[in-house]
Design a protein around this nucleic acid. Structure first.
Length: 840
DNA sequence: CTCTCCCT
C-alpha cells in the first residue's frame, strides 16, 4: 500500500539522522501517524532505544497502535504498544509506545531522563493542547539538561511553522502531501453578524442544509457551535424534511455511545442523512460517507478570566485553519462540496489559526506540574507560547491559598501529593483533606463526577450534585436500569465509577482520620473555597460568591432555598455566573470547616440611605459577610474617615455654606488670583475635597450624621486656615466693605476670576473723583451705579470718565423721574448723600 | 444557551 507520506520518508530519515529536531507538516490523509513511527524503528541513531508517539486522544492512540501492530503482523503489546488511562498494552518487547498526553507528562515527571527512549513524536501538534505544549517544553528542557541525544519529531496538519522551527533551534520543516479529493467551496453570505443568536444561526444552517440536499448528492455534515443550536436546527429540519425520508442526527460529546454511533455509521437502508455536529466532528470523530459540508463558521469556546478564576463559554468565529479542516471532511471519499455561511470578504477577517489552549486556560495543573518539575517561574523554560503572566499568577495564588504551594512557589508536602493525583489540583486537595475527615470514598466519587461529563441529561436537571451521587449509588447497587430510572446515563455513570475507583486505589490507607464527618457541600468547599455561595437577601436564586462575584441558580432549581452552597461548576457569564453543579452547605459546618479563614472585624462605613455613619462588627469569610452586629463604641478614627467619605460622596454642598462663609471663600479665591505667589490657600472644590482630613476633620469630633454638620461655623473654620498676619492682610487687601463719600459702608461682591463689584447709589459717590481700588491699589472695583430706587443705571470702572461724560445725560433723565432728589450740575464738588438730599 | 479533550 502506498501513501503520500512514503514519498518524503527518505528525506525525513536523512534529516532526523542529522538533526536534534525535525518538523513534518502534512494534511490529513497523508498516513503520517501510522507510517512514520514504524518506518523509524530501525534507524541506526535510535541505537535500540524506543519511540514514544504522543496522540491527543485515547481512541486515536489505541487505533494507531492496533493498526501499526497489525502491519508488523502482531497484536498491540508486542513491538508496538500503547498506554492510555485505565488501559495499557506494553511489554518488554515494546519499542514503539503510543501514549496520550497525561501519560507522557506523568512519564516525564517520573523519569525526566526518559530512560530508553530515543525519539519523541508529537502527532497532531497543530491542535496545540495545553498538555502537548507543556510536554514539548519539558522535552526541550530534558534535551538541554540531561539528554542531548534525545530527538524530537513534531507532526502536524497546517501549523504556523516559523515560530516552532525557531523554538527547535531552526529545525528543518518537511512538507508532505495529503490524499484527499478536491472540495468545491461555495460562499453563502447570510445575515449572520459577529454574535448571532442561536435561533438566527439555526435558521441559516437549516436553510443551507435544505439547499445542499437539493443541489448535492450524498450525506451532509453541518458544523454548529453547540448542542442548543443543534437541537434548534434539528427541529427546523425535521419539520421541513420529514416527508422526504431524510434522517437527521445530532452529534456532540454529551451524547451516549449509541447515539454517537448512529450519527457516525451510514444508514443501512441507504437513506440520506444530515449530521448536525459540534467541532467534535472536526478531528475527534470521523463520519463515514460525507460528501457535503455546511459550515456555520462558529464554535463555542471557553474563555478563562483570571480575575474571577472562572471560565465563560463564548460563541466565536472559527479560524481559517478550522474552516479548512471542516471543508476537508467532505473530500474523504471523492470530490465534495462545502457551503460556508460567510463571504470571501469576511473570510479575510478570520484568524489564520486557533489560539493555543495555553493562552486561554486555567493554569492550576500546569503550575503544579512545573513546581513538581522544579520550576517556579515559566521564564525558566522555553515555550512556543509562554503561559500568560496573569493566568499564571492567578493559578499560583489559588494554589498558595490552598496550601499546595509555598510563598516562593515551591511545592508543600500537600502540594506534592496533589501533583501526583490524576485530577485537577482543586479536586486533589479535596481528596487529600478527605482523608483527615474519613470521607475518602465520597470524595473519590465527587472528584470523579467533576472530572467527567455530567451523567444527568434532562434539560431541567437540578444543579444539586447529590442527585448525581444518588444515580451513582443506584448503579452500584442495582445496575444500569436503576440509574436510568433516575434520569442518569448509565455509561456516563460507569465512567465516573471507573475514575472513582482509580482514585480510591491511589488514596487508600494513606493518612489517618483526624476529624469526623463532612458533608458533600463541606468537601466541595475544600476544593472551591472561592466559590462558597451565600444567598442574597432579596434575590431569587441569586447568590454572592466568596470571591466577590455574583452567581445564579436556574429559576426552578430545588437548591434555591439554601442559604449557603458550595459551588463546583459555573459559567462566569457576563454579569452573573450560572451555577451548574453545587451542594448545600450548612452554616454550622461552614463555620467549623473554615474557622481558620473566618475574620472578625469592625467596619465603620458611610450609609448613603440614612445619611449616617454606621458601625458594625462583621464576621466574614473572604468577600462574604456571615454575621453583622451593631458596634456600640466604634473607633473614633474610623468613624471620622467614614464621615469624610460620606461628605465626599455627597459633595461640598452638604456643608453649611452661609453667606459669610461663601463671601470669605470668594475673597480668598480672588486674592489667590490677583496674588498667585502670596501663599493664599487654595479653596477650590477639588482642593477642599481632597484635603478634608486637614481642614475639616479637626472640627468633626463626635459627629456621625450629616445633619450635625449644619452646626458647623464654616466661615470660622475656613478663616482658621489663615494665620494672624494673613487675616490682617485679607481685611486690608480684600475688605468686605468699602466706605463711600456718603459715609455708607457698602458690601463688595467677590467672584473668582472677576473684578470685585461695588453696587451703590450714584448719589452716594458725589465728590469721589477716581474709581476705588483694592488689593493695595492694584485692582479697580467695578461700579454698578444705581438709581435712587436701586435700579442699575451704568456699569463702569472709570468713575472720572463717567462724571465728565455720561453723567449729564443720566442726570437729565433721573431728574425727570426723581424730581425730589439731589441732582447737582457738578458731581465732583457736590456733597454725597445717602438720602434724597444732603442735610443742609 | 453546558465547548471539547485528557491523566501512574
Amino acid at each position: 500500500m502506498s501513501l503520500p507520506i512514503h514519498a518524503i520518508l527518505p528525506q525525513l530519515r536523512a534529516q532526523l539522522a542529522r538533526q536534534r529536531a525535525v518538523m513534518l507538516s502534512a494534511p490529513p490523509g497523508s498516513g503520517k501517524t501510522t507510517v512514520v513511527p514504524v518506518a523509524l524503528l530501525a534507524e541506526e541513531w535510535l541505537a535500540g532505544q524506543s519511540i514514544l508517539l504522543l496522540e491527543p486522544r485515547r481512541i486515536a492512540a489505541k487505533l494507531a497502535a492496533g493498526f501499526m501492530a497489525r502491519q508488523l503482523g502482531e497484536e498491540p503489546g508486542q513491538r508496538v504498544g500503547y498506554r492510555v488511562r485505565f488501559e495499557s498494552r506494553v511489554s518488554s518487547a515494546t519499542r514503539l509506545e503510543v501514549v496520550t498526553e497525561g501519560v507522557l507528562t506523568r512519564r516525564l515527571q517520573d523519569d525526566p531522563e526518559l530512560t530508553g527512549v530515543g525519539l519523541v513524536i508529537f502527532d497532531e501538534f497543530h491542535e496545540r493542547s495545553l498538555q502537548a505544549d507543556l510536554a514539548l517544553t519539558l522535552c526541550l528542557d530534558v534535551i538541554s539538561a540531561l539528554r542531548d541525544d534525545l530527538k524530537i519529531l513534531v507532526m502536524s496538519a497546517t501549523l504556523d511553522t516559523g515560530p516552532l522551527s525557531r523554538l527547535l533551534h531552526d529545525a528543518p520543516v518537511l512538507r508532505g502531501e495529503g490524499e484527499s479529493h478536491p472540495v468545491a467551496v461555495e460562499y453563502l453570505p447570510g445575515r449572520l453578524g459577529p454574535q448571532p443568536l442561536p435561533r438566527e444561526l439555526a435558521g441559516e444552517v437549516a436553510t443551507a442544509v435544505v439547499r445542499a440536499l437539493r443541489e448535492q448528492p450524498g450525506d451532509i455534515l453541518a458544523f454548529l457551535p453547540g448542542a442548543f443550536e443543534i437541537r434548534l436546527t434539528a427541529e427546523l429540519l425535521r419539520g421541513a424534511l420529514a416527508p422526504e425520508g431524510v434522517l437527521v442526527h445530532p452529534l456532540y460529546g454529551d451524547l451516549n455511545l449509541a447515539a454517537q454511533g448512529a450519527a457516525i455509521e451510514p444508514d443501512p437502508q441507504g437513506r440520506r442523512r444530515v449530521i448536525l455536529a459540534t467541532p467534535i466532528a472536526e478531528t475527534s470523530l470521523t463520519i463515514e460517507g460525507i460528501s457535503t459540508v455546511v459550515d456555520s463558521g462558529f464554535k463555542r469556546q471557553p474563555q478563562f478570566d483570571p480575575n474571577s478564576g472562572l471560565s465563560r463559554l463564548t460563541t466565536q468565529r472559527i479560524s481559517r485553519a478550522s474552516a479548512t479542516q471542516r471543508c476537508g471532511r467532505a473530500g474523504r471519499l471523492g470530490p465534495g462540496h462545502c457551503y460556508r455561511l460567510w463571504s470571501l470578504g469576511e473570510e479575510q477577517g478570520l484568524r489564520p489559526f486557533d489560539p493555543p489552549e495555553i493562552l486561554n486556560a486555567d493554569l492550576c495543573q500546569l503550575v503544579l506540574d512545573l513546581a513538581l518539575w522544579g520550576v517556579t517561574a515559566p521564564e525558566g523554560l522555553r515555550w512556543l507560547d509562554p503561559p500568560p503572566a496573569g493566568h499564571f499568577s492567578q493559578a499560583r495564588e489559588l494554589l498558595q491559598g490552598l496550601d499546595a504551594l509555598e510563598s516562593q512557589g515551591g511545592l508543600t508536602p500537600l502540594g506534592r501529593m496533589v501533583a501526583e493525583l490524576p485530577v485537577h489540583p482543586r479536586l486533589g486537595l479535596m481528596l487529600a483533606h478527605a482523608q483527615e475527615h474519613g470521607a475518602v470514598a465520597l470524595a473519590c466519587d465527587l472528584a470523579a463526577l467533576l472530572s467527567e461529563r455530567d451523567p444527568l441529561k434532562s434539560r431541567d436537571r437540578s444543579a444539586d450534585i447529590e442527585e448525581r451521587l444518588h444515580a451513582l449509588a443506584a448503579l452500584r447497587a442495582h445496575g444500569p436500569a436503576a440509574a436510568r430510572s433516575l434520569d442518569a446515563d448509565p455509561e456516563a455513570c460507569r465512567r465516573i465509577l471507573q475514575t472513582s475507583s482509580q482514585l480510591g486505589r491511589l488514596l487508600t490507607s494513606r493518612g489517618r482520620v483526624k476529624e469526623k464527618g463532612i458533608s458533600v457541600g463541606g468537601l466541595l468547599s475544600l476544593a472551591f473555597p472561592d466559590r462558597i455561595a451565600q444567598r442574597r437577601p432579596a434575590g431569587q436564586g441569586q447568590y454572592k460568591l466568596s470571591n466577590g462575584h455574583g452567581a445564579r441558580l436556574a429559576a426552578h432549581d430545588p437548591l434555591n432555598g439554601c442559604e449557603y452552597l458550595a459551588v463546583a461548576e459555573l459559567d462566569a457569564g457576563k454579569a452573573e455566573g450560572r451555577i451548574f453543579l453545587a451542594a448545600p452547605l450548612a452554616r454550622e459546618e461552614l463555620f467549623a470547616l473554615w474557622k481558620g479563614k473566618i475574620r472578625k472585624e469592625e467596619k465603620v462605613y458611610w450609609d448613603e440611605e440614612s445619611g449616617t455613619v454606621k458601625a458594625v462588627c462583621l464576621t466574614s469569610l473572604a468577600d462574604l459577610t456571615l454575621e453583622s452586629a451593631p458596634q456600640p463604641k466604634p473607633d473614633q478614627e474610623k468613624l471620622l474617615s467614614a464621615l469624610l467619605a460620606g461628605i465626599r460622596t455627597q459633595g461640598l454642598a452638604v456643608l453649611p455654606w452661609t453667606e459669610q462663609a461663601q463671601a470669605l471663600r470668594s475673597r480668598l479665591e480672588s486674592l489667590r488670583d490677583w496674588e498667585p505667589d502670596a501663599g493664599w490657600p487654595d479653596l477650590s472644590d477639588g482642593q477642599l475635597l481632597a484635603t478634608l482630613e486637614e481642614w475639616l476633620a479637626p472640627w468633626l469630633t463626635g459627629l456621625n450624621r450629616l445633619e450635625q454638620l449644619k452646626k458647623l461655623d464654616l466661615a470660622a473654620i475656613l478663616a482658621s486656615r489663615l494665620d494672624w498676619r494673613q487675616q490682617q492682610e485679607l481685611e486690608r487687601a480684600a475688605p468686605t466693605h468699602l466706605q463711600v463719600p456718603s459715609g455708607s459702608r457698602i458690601r463688595l461682591r467677590y467672584a473668582p476670576g472677576q473684578p470685585p463689584v461695588l453696587a451703590v447709589r450714584l448719589q452716594e459717590l458725589f465728590g469721589l473723583t477716581e474709581t476705588p481700588r483694592i488689593c493695595h491699589g492694584r485692582i479697580p472695583v467695578t461700579l454698578h451705579l444705581l438709581s435712587p430706587a436701586q435700579r442699575p443705571i451704568q456699569i463702569t470702572s472709570d468713575l472720572a470718565g463717567f462724571w465728565q461724560g455720561a453723567y449729564h445725560a443720566v442726570k437729565k433723565e433721573l431728574k425727570g423721574r426723581y424730581p425730589k432728589h439731589y441732582w447737582p450740575d457738578d458731581p465732583l464738588t457736590a456733597q454725597a448723600t445717602a438720602r434724597a438730599k444732603p442735610r443742609s
